[in-house]
Amino acid sequence: MTASHIFEVFLKAEGKSEFRHAGSLGAADREMALLLARECYSRRGEGHEIWVVRRDDIGVADTRDLSANFVKPHRMNDGKRVAEHRRSQREDE
């Protein structure tokens, strides 16, 4: 099975949770991957829905581009100043 394709498998559990990556498998095509995915990743009903995606079709972002956003304080607010203000008001009363 070396020349066949690798598919990434995503499961969605019942309820509000989002699809999550479960792992991968080898299959000749998408239909086969869907058929085989259940017994590889959902033997006890872990997935109420399953997606399979050819690994080759996944776009992967450059981590260096992503790291630029690891620290963006102007997009955050921890609420500390307002909390401090309110605390001091309560103390004044």
């Binding site: 070396t2 991968s24 498998l25």
Partner: peptide, 24 residues
């Protein structure tokens, strides 16, 4: 036993992704 085979499958997939050897 199916679980054990399933574990082998997961592990071979992860091992193959390390680029040292293929599954075959």
């Amino acid at each position: 036993t199916q679980d054990e085979i399933g574990h082998a499958h997961l592990l071979y997939m992860v091992a193959a992704d390390m680029g040292v050897k293929t599954r075959e």
